[in-house]
């Protein structure tokens, strides 16, 4: 069964059809790449999948459950986590706090319990502190736990964002240009990280990327869009030789 399914998804901003007739199927455990020239509508698709934009037509299913119309925080609960093209960390908080906030939905104590520090508070807080440190150590960041997020080097900020998204325990992870602004060495590390995440967390990954080395290197399947429409689907090798794709990227 497919984990994520979209049927004829589309959105129009006024008269502009940013995305049209977008139908994909993502199987569990897959690593799928979404590519296309600038302005093709990739991030718009992410925003629809996560509930930031409301699609004007079509539907989105995760695990067979329809999610369009739901609020972003509800969609997170249903198992979609994401990162952003321009990093959006909680810059003035420490690294570990960034991760802890992401455990919010797993915690149940109420304000009263929180203020009076009842046993349930300590139990849940201790639990997420341990979990957050574990998660950070998987990314070799446990020594940065008490640093401010804004003081981290760029590559680590990217990692932290992924880490934070993983803390919400997603089934599907959406990565929006994770390699943007990275040098080849960092990109290589990132590829390893993505592989590692998928195997370790059994999470399905959908990523947007411009770095063709990265995309071709790790994605099993690619979807190419241009002007809001799917122009090709297939394995990296098929895409490489697809005429329409070459046209879209190089111009005819």
């Amino acid at each position: 069964m497919s984990l994520l399914e979209t049927k004829n998804l589309g959105i129009a901003f006024g008269g502009l059809r940013a995305v049209d007739n977008f139908s994909i199927n993502i199987k569990e455990g897959e690593l799928l790449g979404l590519i296309g020239p600038n302005g093709a509508g990739k991030t718009t698709i992410f925003n629809m999948l996560t509930g930031v934009y409301l699609p004007t037509e079509g539907s989105i299913y995760i695990d067979g459950k329809k999610i369009n119309g739901k609020k972003p925080f509800q969609i997170v609960k249903m198992g979609i986590g994401r990162t952003f093209q321009n990093i959006r960390l909680f810059a003035n908080l420490t690294v570990i706090e960034n991760v802890k906030i992401a455990f919010h939905k797993d915690m149940t104590y109420n304000t009263f319990t929180g203020i009076f520090r009842l046993p349930k508070y300590w139990k849940e807080e201790d639990e997420i502190t341990t979990k957050a440190l574990e998660l950070l150590s998987l990314f070799d960041m446990e020594n940065d736990a008490e640093n401010m997020a804004k003081n981290l080097p760029y590559g680590k900020q990217r990692k932290l964002e992924i880490c934070r998204a993983l803390a919400t325990n997603p089934k599907l992870l959406l990565l929006d240009e994770p390699a943007a602004g990275m040098n080849p060495q960092e990109t290589k590390e990132l590829m390893e990280t993505i592989h590692f995440i998928r195997d370790k967390f059994k999470v399905t990954v959908l990523l947007i990327e411009h770095d063709m080395n990265l995309v071709m290197g790790i994605c099993e399947r690619l979807v190419v869009i241009d002007y809001g429409m799917i122009i090709a689907k297939g394995t990296p090798d098929e895409i490489k030789s697809n005429k329409k794709v070459i046209e879209a990227y190089l111009g005819s």
Binding site: V52, K71, F84, H104
Partner: peptide, 9 residues
């Protein structure tokens, strides 16, 4: 936006 994306209502 980030807060919402990690499940904060």
């Amino acid at each position: 936006i980030a807060a919402e994306s990690i499940g904060i209502p």
